[in-house]
Computed example of a mutant assay.
Amino acid sequence: MTGSLARWSVHHDHFRDQPELVLGGVTWGWLHQAFGSRRHIKRKAAEAIQQPVLVLSAPADRLVVADRHPAFCDRLTHCTLIRYPGARHELLMEEDRIRNPVLEDVLAFLNAQGF
């Protein structure tokens, strides 16, 4: 999930110390909604999405197929794709060499949108 054992450990220490915070893994309902939204996006004309989209891609992700991100962005009018070599699924919990550029890119994107 991340290349930072320290951040992962801190994150999971909270669950050990306060088990009532644990949400659990993926549910059937979550999967149903995820697959349904995928079909919905395919049915809609991607060109109709005018809102700028930022896709942060983690090539070493084992949960999401990062190789498909360019094709997704190619279908959108205003899509920015940024890849972080060596990054895994949890970009905001990654090692500083990955997480810091992620945070900078998100802030730059939001600033460019006027936020």
Rank of each mutant, 00 (worst) to 15 (best):
H32T: 04
P59N: 03
K44C: 10
R83P: 07
L56H: 07
L92D: 03
I49M: 04
I98A: 01
H40V: 09
N111P: 02
C79Y: 04
N111A: 11
L5Y: 09
L107G: 06
A60E: 11
E20P: 04
V53H: 08
P70A: 08
L31K: 04
G36R: 11
Q113Y: 05
N100E: 14
V55C: 06
F35T: 14
V10G: 10
L56T: 02
H12C: 12
P70H: 07
R43T: 09
E104W: 12
R83K: 09
R16D: 01
N100Q: 14
E47M: 07
S37E: 15
L91N: 05
L63P: 02
T77W: 09
R97Y: 12
L110R: 01
A60C: 05
L103W: 00
H32K: 14
P52I: 06
R83E: 13
A45H: 11
E104A: 15
S9E: 15
E94R: 03
L76D: 07
W30D: 00
G3E: 08
T80G: 01
H14S: 13
G25S: 09
E20S: 08
V26E: 13
P85A: 05
D61M: 04
L81C: 07
R99T: 02
W30T: 00
A112V: 03
E47F: 04
H78G: 00
S57M: 02
I41K: 10
A71N: 03
Q113G: 07
S57H: 00
F115P: 08
G86P: 08
I49D: 00
L31F: 02
S9L: 14
V22K: 12
H14D: 12
V64Q: 03
M93E: 07
P101K: 08
W28D: 09
W30Q: 00
D67T: 09
K44I: 09
E94V: 06
A6C: 08
W28I: 02
A108C: 11
R38C: 12
H11R: 15
L81Y: 03
H89M: 01
V64P: 02
K44H: 12
V64L: 02
H89L: 00
A60N: 10
G36W: 00
V10H: 15
S4M: 11
H40D: 15
L103R: 14
V102L: 07
H14V: 12
Q18K: 08
R43S: 15
L76C: 01
E104N: 13
P52C: 03
A48L: 02
K44F: 01
N100G: 00
C73W: 01
A71G: 12
K44Q: 13
W8I: 11
A48E: 07
P85H: 06
P52L: 01
H12E: 14
T27E: 09
F35W: 15
A46C: 12
L31Y: 02
I41E: 09
C73E: 02
D105P: 09
A60Y: 04
A112Q: 10
V65M: 05
L110I: 11
E20M: 10
F35C: 05
F109E: 00
H69R: 00
T2V: 00
E47T: 04
G36I: 10
